[in-house]
Nucleic acid binder design. Structure first.
Lengths: 365, 365
DNA sequence: TTGTAAGCGTTATCAG
DNA sequence: CTGATAACGCTTACAA
């Protein structure tokens, strides 16, 4: 008795393209003179639609500029075509590149990426989690800062959601994880400085409560052990990844009774701080103190002296995390490991004491 | 006759917190022994709810770990609490910082940010627009690359949506826009090199079909005109913002009959390319050729010679764009201009010929 | 092959 | 102040 009203949009059929309301499936069905079900099937490329009908519907959709509402779809599916990404600082080149990689992979499968920048605050990490939970994201790529993940566990208990940790391991919960091979990287850097003949090698570490920071320290210790050198805790200064932190910790090491002749630094930003400290003290690099660090950057070959650094593949890291999300969501992708550990490559320049060349470009795209 | 079934969730009341389905308003209402309508009012802090009832509802919500579904809300409102951001390269420090600024402002108002990276391809810009349109984003922050915005206009005709352009003007359509003062910046750089006594100043420009590239060229020309110097088109080489482009265009300028004695470069990345070219040719900087560029970077003080550059406030740019979105959405925010032109400040270092100091830090946070 | 109708969670309208 | 109910756009059993 009311089938006419049902197929016809409340505000009348769409005739002009300048209507103030996005076209809906009802509009399309009406224009193509079919039922909504048929229109839906045609749009989604399902079987059991005659070629004629399909063409008709697609033409109508085209004409009306129809864009299926992801909101309605997600609402019905109880899950949005959306993946959240929570990072401590999206303006950091590492996370920005990782985001790019993730977004590249995900957008190809029709997902969009919701970014949340926690500004390094656990409080904001919790807020972000709530926000994304409310959005019913299908998956979450998380670069954890807070070590307390009670609320994360709580959320996941009620919300089935693909989860991949990046950069740091998520302790206390088996989770797909993508990170760089921090232990091996630190071994490589330290071993390289050992090859230059250094025996008193310092380490400006990252934040040690983060697994990446801890792992880098472990690698440094392993390399020393491999060379039969006793570990001296006085040669380790805990930084906070930042340039200012690197500066401060470098000063601390320089002010010890017996300063190192070489330093392994856990980030290039801290290396910059260190170089500034050394410059201030008029200590020649690599002459009096050699330096090698993590996290190569585009400017590493240009500074004085050019930085010997480990190159990480941030884009690949984000892309790998996204792939893992897709795997968990059952999308079509190759099966992958539980913990991806991406290798890093040493880019030898001059700060370590080598005669590094002047290379025009540094990081692979 | 069925009110019992309606207030009680289909799968039975929620008792344990480990249910496999997020709590809904129905669950909360049931637990608080009120109607869904009342529960909704209580949750949303609306009037006409007794304090007792409200407390009861909030307690139930808390217990059940209730997170209102943004999907359902958005679906009902025909608009998500979401703002899209389309940029050509999110791993570029400028866009990354702008994203951070935007996300900071928007998340404080309960919005989340959907990022799309177009990888500089107009095709992907169109796809991103479709994706975000489907998501029924409330607003869109767009850093345009494609000059053809026909489809954008088409989309906007049917979808009411807050829109703010950043970085480049969106020609042919009055749009809120936030950009840096490109003309003034180029004038400043050029004038500074003029003060050093240079009369033959070249320009490695950005992409001239983008308004930022065009404006920078205009500023360069204006400064020359102000100094009564005739414009010589042979001194302008159109780059593409990239390091490789800067290298190539620098070589081109060097290979002309009468090379410039100073160069204004439209981006720091291109300046790096230029410096590498000059180094390759053994041309001392600033001795034989002085250099000054746009887009200061953290590593600018560390390279050899340290770069004289214009500092842009990317974070502020993103934040301003977000504010404009909020204004358009009628949220509570101060009224703002139609076109924001953020000033840039000249950071004098050594590549221009000044005796720039070694500053420990560069960019303001 | 096509059509009908239920239902996803929320808010708004209207009746009590 | 509170409760019942319709509606938002879409997918999907199920019916034809």
């Amino acid at each position: 008795m009311q089938s006419k009203e049902l197929t016809e949009p409340a505000s009348g059929p769409l005739q002009a393209a300048d209507m103030r309301r996005p076209a809906t499936l009802v509009d399309v069905a009406f224009a193509a003179k079919v039922s909504i079900a048929t229109a839906s099937r045609a749009i989604n490329g399902r079987r059991y639609v005659s070629d004629d009908t399909r063409a008709q519907v697609l033409r109508a959709a085209e004409q009306l500029n129809f864009r299926p509402s992801s909101l309605a779809r997600g609402f019905r599916a109880q899950r949005s075509q959306t993946v959240g990404m929570i990072v401590p600082d999206i303006s950091s080149p590492f996370y920005a590149a990782a985001l790019r990689g993730a977004q590249h992979v995900l957008s190809r499968q029709g997902y969009t990426v919701l970014v949340c920048d926690t500004e390094e605050q656990p409080q904001r990490e919790r807020e972000a989690l709530d926000l994304l939970t409310g959005q019913r994201v299908a998956g979450l790529i998380l670069a954890p800062v807070a070590s307390d993940h009670a609320n994360l566990r709580q959320v996941l208990a009620r919300q089935p959601m693909a989860l991949v940790a990046i950069d740091n391991r998520l302790e206390g919960r088996p989770t797909d994880t993508v990170l760089v091979d921090n232990v091996e990287g630190a071994r490589t850097l330290t071993a390289h400085l050992l090859e230059h003949g250094h025996r008193r090698i310092g380490h400006i570490s990252g934040i040690l409560s983060e697994t990446s920071g801890a792992d880098r320290l472990i690698g440094y210790q392993q390399a020393l052990a491999d060379a039969d050198i006793d570990f001296d805790a006085r040669l380790v200064a805990e930084g906070d990844w930042s340039e200012a932190g690197g500066y401060a910790q470098a000063m601390r090491l320089l002010d010890t009774a017996n300063p190192p002749t070489a330093i392994v630094i856990a980030s290039s930003l801290m290396a910059v701080g260190t170089l500034l400290a050394l410059r201030e003290r008029n200590i020649p690099v690599p002459g009096s103190i050699a330096v090698a660090c993590f996290d190569d950057a585009p400017w590493a070959p240009l500074i004085e002296p050019s930085l010997t650094a480990l190159c990480r593949q941030d884009y690949a890291l984000g892309a790998a995390a996204a792939e893992l999300i897709l795997v968990q969501l059952g999308a079509k992708t190759p099966r992958t490991e539980r913990e991806h550990r991406l290798p890093m490559t040493l880019v030898v320049r001059r700060s370590c004491g080598c005669n590094g060349e002047i290379s025009p470009l540094t990081q692979p795209a």
